[in-house]
Design a binder for these strands. Structure first.
Lengths: 133, 133
DNA sequence: TCCATCTATATGCGAACTGCACATAGAAGA
DNA sequence: TCTTCTATGTGCAGTTCGCATATAGATGGA
């Protein structure tokens, strides 16, 4: 039984893009080096209505990007607050971001295929219902 | 260590939409009742370039939709071939499809936020590089 | 008849992703 | 001192997904 939790109401939807935070983080890092906590705050730019993600997700994605050598990190003594792990994009990361963008454009295309199928079907469906009156 | 497999080349991308097959199946069922094997073939319409999904995924999604009472199923003795489990959409399923569409439009909006951020940044970035020459 | 192939549905397993809760710890201010 | 903010991280459990595999009726050719 798939958890009975997958069907949560209209809130907290899981109907999003797989690992979409990853390209967002890559893009933010393309602007210049940054660290987890700051990146988390800057994610608002991408139009997520509510909080984009749990901080643990951000930190884990950043680490996995480092595993893949798409970013590098170093510790900086903050002028205020605790030390920060500052990430910067590598050449590999730059290429990876481009790949992501290409894929997202393909995703966009598929999405619009769906919308077009939906609209045309619903139009026919409505016409069909009217015809029956 | 996240598997060292997440970074597969440009092939087999996991950069897609979460559970996107679900709304596609719902839409196909909105047209009329159908069964797994046929639905699998009809998924081509949605512009997936390569094979949209594994058949096991399709069957599992259909079962979970039934768990959620978004579809119902019955067995039919095929006029040819093995028996088929034929699914049809319920009223609840109809509402759920509408919810999906709303969510996908939101996803589309966020996607375009990303594209716009990307484009404007890349334009500045290029101008910056030219300026340095 | 036998056997390969097509149609059709389904399970098992492991890898990956994610959200929630929680741990840790330095810094700043009341 | 105590609380709060900044900052990074781990543990766990639920969910998804692709691959491999199982099952089995139907079909057609050798």
């Amino acid at each position: 039984m798939p958890g009975r939790r997958g069907w949560r109401g209209s809130g907290g939807s899981r109907r999003r893009i797989n690992r979409f935070l990853e390209p967002c983080l890559l893009l933010l890092l393309h602007r210049g080096e940054s660290y987890g906590y700051q990146l988390l705050e800057n994610l608002e730019r991408f139009g997520f209505s509510d909080s984009p993600a749990d901080s643990s997700t951000i930190y884990r994605i950043l680490r996995s990007l480092e595993d893949g050598e798409f970013v590098t990190s170093r510790w900086t003594e903050g002028d205020s607050g605790p030390a920060r792990r500052v990430y910067s994009l590598t050449g590999r990361g730059d290429v990876y971001l481009k790949m992501w963008v290409k894929d997202l454009r393909e995703t966009d295309r598929i999405l619009h295929c769906f919308f077009s199928e939906y609209s045309s079907h619903m139009e026919l469906h409505r016409a069909d219902e009217n015809g029956r009156n």
